[in-house]
Amino acid sequence: MGKKLVVGVLASGRGTNLQSIINSIEEGRLDAEIGIVISDNPEAKALLRAENHGLKQQCIESGDFADTEEYEEEMIEVLEENNVDLVAMAGFMKILSSYFIQHYSNRIMNIHPSLLPAFPGTDAQKQALEYGVKVSGCTVHFADEGMDSGPIIMQAAVSVLEDDTVESLSKRILAEEHRIYPEAIQLYADNKLQVRDDRVEIL
Rank of each mutant, 00 (worst) to 15 (best):
M1P: 09
G2F: 06
K3F: 01
K4A: 12
K4R: 14
V9Q: 03
L10N: 00
A11R: 02
A11C: 11
S20I: 00
I22F: 01
N23A: 13
I25V: 12
D31W: 04
E33W: 01
V37S: 05
V37Y: 00
I38M: 00
D40K: 05
P42H: 03
E43F: 13
N52G: 06
K56F: 00
Q58F: 01
C59F: 03
C59P: 07
C59R: 03
A66G: 07
D67M: 06
E70M: 14
Y71A: 04
E73R: 11
E73V: 02
E74Y: 07
E77D: 12
E80W: 10
A88V: 13
G91A: 03
L96E: 04
Y99H: 13
S105H: 13
I108C: 01
M109V: 09
N110E: 12
S114K: 13
S114D: 13
P120C: 12
Q125W: 05
K126H: 15
G132M: 03
G137Y: 05
C138K: 01
T139M: 09
A143M: 14
Q155E: 04
A157M: 14
A157I: 10
V158W: 08
L161K: 12
E162K: 08
K171W: 03
R172M: 01
L174D: 00
I180E: 09
I180S: 08
E183A: 12
L187S: 09
Y188C: 08
Y188V: 02
N191G: 11
R196L: 12
D198T: 08
R199S: 06
V200S: 04
I202N: 02
I202T: 11
